[in-house]
Design a protein around this nucleic acid. Structure first.
Lengths: 143, 143
DNA sequence: GTTGGTGCAAAATGTTTGCACGGGG
DNA sequence: CCCCGTGCAAACATTTTGCACCAAC
């Protein structure tokens, strides 16, 4: 985790006229490590390394990183959204109302929906943002 | 609209040990009339008839009506959820990120997804809560 | 008459904004 | 050295909660 790799995203930001700052690096690392982190959680994570970082900076940074296509978000429940690295493989989410469990499903599971909406309506689905609520097998109300 | 019908839902509530109050009637009527109302909008609507009704009563009432299965909610955007009558026909929603348009789609459009999740995972989808984000035909970025 | 429901105000939660300072380029 | 990005505090938006009073039954 948090390897320097090539830091090619530095150029990505610079090319768009944005600056590379320690806060932005830390937020991006936290998004990667938490996998499904809320802004609050990301902020806490970042503050383990750099205490001074403010929650409003986290919000502004997430907005920026999403704008340049480095992260995405979805809504897994009632409250705060959760953030992903955009480089993670595409997937959608299932959320069980019974036990609260969150399951990642591969694009093939939702491909029929995506195809149908594209064919019928010309609608291009954002599968990364797609969250399906319902009840998992274990939580079916019997009878 | 707001016909008295048989008010059979009165018994529905009573049978569960809840009371029938003017506020609950008004909130239910407002949900029906607004079709996609947020709690705030529902409250405003209710207050056109009865000024004193408080927003917290609206929240508590919506929670109750949802618990007894008379209304459902979904999330059409960033902010507040929107409420429907449960007696309305099942449908899901598409939200276009380009123009913001909200489209209702019939269950058949999402049936393949529902079937797939049930067959593969035993997951029972709540189609009424399902909202798909993406871009409508008119808002595809060309090229 | 009981007890659940309501109005009100305050707190809790989640997010945005204005502003002055400091660091990145 | 310029000006974008940050910290901070306050505003904002949405939802929840504590409590005394009132109304449904």
């Amino acid at each position: 985790m948090a390897e320097t790799a090539h830091e090619s995203w530095h150029e990505e930001l610079r090319a768009r006229g944005y600056r590379v700052t320690p806060q932005r690096q830390l937020v991006l690392e936290a998004v990667a490590e938490l996998v499904h982190g809320t802004p609050e959680e990301i902020c806490s994570r970042v503050q383990q390394t750099a205490r001074g970082v403010n929650i409003s900076t986290v919000y502004r940074t997430l907005e920026l990183l999403e704008k340049v296509g480095m992260v995405t978000h979805t809504h897994l429940g009632h409250g705060a959204p959760t953030y992903h690295l955009a480089t993670e493989a595409d997937h959608s989410h299932l959320v069980c109302r019974g036990c609260g469990e969150v399951t990642e499903v591969q694009p093939e599971s939702v491909a029929s929906l995506v195809d149908r909406l594209r064919a019928d309506l010309g609608f291009e689905t954002d599968v990364r943002h797609l969250t399906v609520f319902g009840r998992c097998r274990a939580c079916q109300t019997p009878g």
